[in-house]
Design a protein around this nucleic acid. Structure first.
Lengths: 344, 344
DNA sequence: CTGAAAGCGCTTACAG
DNA sequence: CTGAAAGCGCTTACAG
């Protein structure tokens, strides 16, 4: 009944025979059309209904939504979002905000994560667009987006978030990372002799921009600038090294949310107090009253989702590039140290 | 050339004419097959190539992946994950861990969020399965999963995480929330006269279980049990009220990560110190050395992803229900208060 | 209530 | 190098 040689067998995982409507109809002894009707919950004679349901169960029949979608001409209501690292609360908040806006308009948001791998990004983009995703919100990991030119010329709606497109004209919502980092370092220098800066690995655009801003103030070869802190643990390690020097920094600047967390962990572990400022905000910074430089991830997610909706109604919009300002959230004044809970 | 009356017009958003391969071929003056070859990057004569590419651009042609997939019989490599609230770090960590495991085996993980809406859950499940998602990881929001019986009988691979299926036999990975909550309250009672408990709105299974555990120790009508704290701000408000009573609690138990965050915010705001314990761990609890009861979200995500892989190779596995133990992470002893950074 | 035929937009053989 | 025909698994008209 089911031909195991059929095309869809054995692509990934175990070969898997899929029963078709045809197979169910044959086993039930009724026509394809009747079978379709019954499985779609329309009325039919009791006899036919039970025969068809039995046959479907026996053959483990599952309708092929791909075929249905093709025939019925229904358009997908899916919007895709591709982020670099879903475990970073910055991106999950962004995704949540976008989802809220899109769901209100009847669209599904499907989120995938590249783990900063350009290959994965290209593959995910391709697979999402081929499935007629109505728009794509992209936090890019790839260093070059010219591969998207053709897709965009073909009418795909692509919107960049948090990091700008490279070699491509497309909508983007990014923040003024370089300028913000430069200005906060300049401000710290006013009340501190030694300002240390800890940055991420130099992969993401935001990481490079923030570092560039700090370098403009402190010089490229400052021994107080340290990078490579991709996880909080690594940031903690670097901070401990800095604090252990003969001339330790009097202020520490963490160039993203995870790094600043690591800095606070270091202070806690060493029982030290020090002025701390963070780029990006978080619950922990709030609790310790650490002054932060921040763009709401929710704001970026909302703007991008709204733009996606606009583009879905009118794909011929000219690209816009919106620069969002990072704002300083004043908490502990920059010349005061962050005090840690006393240890027993 | 492009017939604006075609079926896929005007379903959602603006009507959108889609050029077909046929339209491109007609405009370029070559056959459909040649057009297909050129757009798929195969070799063809230079003349045909440029004519086809021009026509494709002019018509904003995008291949229909649905049709391609149907004809070529390719099987999707997508796995779906549906969570109740993506902005909760618990779930984004879970998703990240699952994604890592699945990506290693060549599967894409597509994540969607229901915002605790059963309707959205049903819709998302249906749309994902119809698209031949190979497996579905589900943190359910719905109070009844019998709607999935038919899907499962048809061979869909569905795995429940964090919350168990109701009226359905399916794989699940959940923690012993009730018992863990009961035991920690019992332990707190040993060194505290007044143990207060703050819980979430009684929607999610975990919220109900945790409350039930606390009630078993404190009684259903204890004035020290407060629920409805769905956001940290609400938990903070409740905690402030509790702390302002004539006989304030000597210990506060937060029944999830966001609630415990709110409790700490309340203590900070009021400048009070108090013993605090949290169900679920977080960066903030770690920094304040709050003792926590925890199941690694990463562990749940990994187990579920591994189970999905197994089911994809062998769909006939009998359902398993794994109960994960919540473990106590000892930090500050239960009879000691959490001390807050001194305010200036 | 039920069925035979046509077709969704592609790709896959198979010929020229 | 190129094309006409068949078919992926369904649903949509249209008949009986």
């Amino acid at each position: 009944m089911v031909d195991p040689q059929r095309a869809n067998a054995g692509i990934k995982g175990q070969p898997q025979e899929r029963a078709r409507l045809q197979d169910v109809a044959a086993l039930a002894g009724v026509s394809i059309k009747t079978t379709s009707r019954i499985l779609n919950g329309e009325k039919a004679s009791a006899g036919a209904t039970s025969k068809v349901l039995d046959a479907a169960k026996l053959l483990r029949y599952r309708p092929n939504g791909i075929a249905r979608e093709l025939r019925s001409g229904a358009i997908s209501n899916g919007v895709g979002m591709i982020v670099s690292d879903l475990s970073n609360p910055f991106y999950s908040k962004m995704a949540y905000a976008a989802e809220e806006i899109l769901a209100k308009e009847g669209f599904d948001l499907f989120i995938a994560s590249t783990d900063e791998d350009p290959q994965r990004e290209e593959g995910l983009v391709k697979r999402m667009l081929e499935r007629r995703t109505r728009a794509l919100l992209l936090v890019p990991s790839s260093p070059d987006h010219s591969y998207l030119k053709f897709e965009m010329a073909l009418g795909s709606n692509i919107i960049f978030l948090d990091r700008p497109p490279v070699n491509l004209l497309a909508d983007s919502f990014v923040s003024n990372d370089r300028q913000a980092a430069r200005e906060i370092v300049a401000e710290l220098k006013k009340s501190h002799r030694r300002v240390a800066v800890i940055g991420d690995e130099q992969i993401a655009w935001t990481a490079k921009e923030r570092l560039a801003g700090a370098v403009e103030e402190l010089g490229a070869d400052s021994p107080l600038i340290q990078i490579g802190a991709h996880r909080p643990e690594k940031a903690e390690e670097i901070a401990i090294e800095l604090l252990g020097r003969a001339e330790p920094p009097t202020a520490l600047l963490g160039l993203n949310n995870l790094i600043t967390l690591g800095i606070l962990q270091a202070l806690k572990k060493c029982g030290r107090s020090c002025s701390v400022v963070g780029v990006d905000d978080s619950d922990v910074l709030q609790m310790f009253e650490v002054t932060a430089l921040n763009v709401d991830p929710e704001r970026i997610g909302e703007l991008a989702a709204q733009r996606a909706l606009k583009r879905i109604s009118n794909p011929d919009l000219a690209p816009i590039n919106q620069l969002l300002e990072m704002r300083k959230i004043h908490r502990t004044p920059l010349d005061r140290p962050i005090i840690f809970p006393e240890r027993k």
